[in-house]
Structures are given as C-alpha cells and as structure tokens.
C-alpha cells in the first residue's frame, strides 16, 4: 500500500510538472538507478523491449560501410520472436544457430565455426540469456569468440532485471544487455525496455537512435547530427513507475513456471531470485 501511495503521488507530480515525455527527469534517473542496481555503467529506457533492442541494433549497424547494405544478426533458433523480427525491421537478416539441449542457450563450442560460415557481415550476436540454467554455461567463452571476431554481443535477458552470472553483472560479459519491463518481468510497468551497457559509445549511439538523432544532453534542440534517429523514447509515466518499484524493492516474484525450472538446479546469483529464498 505504501508503494502504491508513493507511486500515485509521484505520477501526480509528473502530471503537474507538465514534462510527460521527450527525455524528462525520470527517464534519465530511472535508467541510471536500473543500471546501478544491475552493476552497469549506463542505462537507457525505451518504450518497449523491441524499441530498446532496435536502438542497439541500429547503432551496431552504423559501423558498416555504406556499400554493406546487407548484414546478418545471429540469433538462437529457440529465442524470443522479437530477436529475429526486429532484426528484419532494421534491415538485417536473422541467421539461426542451434542451442544446447541441456541449458537451452547458444552453444559456445559451435559458435566460432558457425560465425565463419556466414558470408554476410555480422551486425551482432544475440544470445537469449536464460536465468536459472546450467551453472557451468561458458558465457565468457561466447564473449571471447565475439571479441576475437569483433562482433558485438547482445544478451536478451528478458525480465530478469538485476541478474548476475557467476556473481558478476551481465554487462561484464557483453556489449549490451536488453531487458523487458512488461508483464511477467521483475519490474512490470506495463511495457518498457531497458538497454544496459558499460560502453559509453554504445550508450550514446543507442541514445541518439532512440531520440531523433540527438545525443544524451543535447536536449530538444533541432537535429544537426549525422545519424537519422527515430523515436523510441519512454514516457515519464513509465520511467517514474519503474524507479518507484525499484526503490521500494517491489520487484515481482518469479512465476511458478520459472521457480519450477530453478528447483534443484544451481542457479545464477540474482537479487531477483534471492528475494524468494
């Protein structure tokens, strides 16, 4: 009840402020709080998971030469539909790699050979990071392979905000981690998406793609930068709600299905899971 009271007071203050969108205070502070909670340097809130993922994918596409009008995004064959559908929307071809039968995630040992077999330049590797799976999953090996090949690695972490791998923040293992703040997520604000990264360049690039080409700190001035950006912005309503829920420690409990999957398994250390134990 206290949280709800605080939520209502905060949202009413947003209403009275007149700043309801276009990079208000909460869109910045909530993203920062979520980044700190997750052990990342930078956070960017967008209006949905798809939007967050799109901002990052578009940024990764910008490194290609203008003659490279086709590229591939490597996704797991068992993954969220958005992983491949958003890739198509940004003009990239999804290429599917198989998954490990025990943990359901991308197979590191086959990844290197798989990447070499793809003829198109690769925009990114997107790994569905399934919290609560096998303890000995070699996420660091996936990261090594991607680094050697200079391919950005994106982790789709779903709703597991705050998840860790071997006790370390997920952003230590990837270029960007994407989260959803919708139904069934640790933080449910109806719909939103979060990008976390330790890389300032990725943060600024994704920010510009999400805000009409304007970088962080450029305000609402007319656009004179050299990328065409869209509008993937979160509203102050949603950002404020996310911040309140986080600050009140009111993260959602894992669903029964997730709890069942985690039962008896060595689990990755996440504050989300710890709440249940």
């Amino acid at each position: 009840m206290e949280m709800q009271k605080r939520l209502i007071e905060t949202e009413l203050s947003v209403l009275e402020s007149g700043v309801w969108g276009t990079i208000g205070g909460y869109s910045v502070s909530a993203a920062k709080a979520l980044a700190e909670y997750s052990g990342a340097n930078y956070g960017l809130l967008c209006h949905s998971y798809d939007a967050a993922y799109e901002a990052v994918l578009r940024h990764f596409g910008a490194r290609f030469d203008e003659s490279q009008t086709s590229d591939a995004t490597v996704v797991c064959e068992v993954s969220a539909p958005a992983d491949s559908l958003v890739a198509v929307c940004v003009g990239s071809t999804p290429v599917f790699t198989d998954v490990c039968e025990t943990c359901g995630m991308m197979r590191p040992k086959n990844l290197e050979a798989f990447l070499q077999s793809i003829e198109l330049p690769i925009r990114a590797v997107v790994l569905d990071y399934l919290v609560g799976r096998k303890e000995d999953y070699k996420l660091s090996r996936v990261q090594e392979i991607c680094r050697e090949k200079k391919i950005p690695l994106i982790l789709n972490v779903g709703g597991y905000i705050g998840a860790r791998h071997e006790g370390k923040p997920l952003t230590d293992y990837c270029d960007a981690a994407i989260f959803t703040l919708g139904k069934g997520s640790a933080i449910d604000v109806g719909m939103s998406g979060l990008v976390l990264t330790n890389d300032m360049g990725i943060f600024q690039g994704a920010f510009a793609y999400h805000n009409c080409g304007r970088g962080f700190g450029e305000g609402a001035s007319l656009v004179m930068n050299d990328i065409v950006g869209g509008d993937l912005r979160v509203t102050e309503w949603t950002a404020a709600a996310a911040q309140i829920i986080l600050e009140e420690g009111a993260l959602a409990t894992p669903t029964p299905m997730v709890q069942e999957k985690m039962k008896g398994q060595p689990v990755f250390d996440t504050p989300y899971v710890k709440k249940q134990q």
């Binding site: 799109e54 958005a82 309503w237």
Partner: peptide, 25 residues
Amino acid sequence: SGGKDGDKFVSVAQDHRITELQASI
C-alpha cells in the same frame, strides 16, 4: 500483435503499442 495472426507468425513486428497510462491521459 507481435507479428501474429492467432498462433502463426505472418508479419514483421515491433512492439509499438501505447501503454494504459498514456491512454488514460
């Protein structure tokens, strides 16, 4: 709707729906 017609994927999709908080305003 996530590119779906029922259970089948029939199109590209991007989740650009408005939220209930926005709709209420």
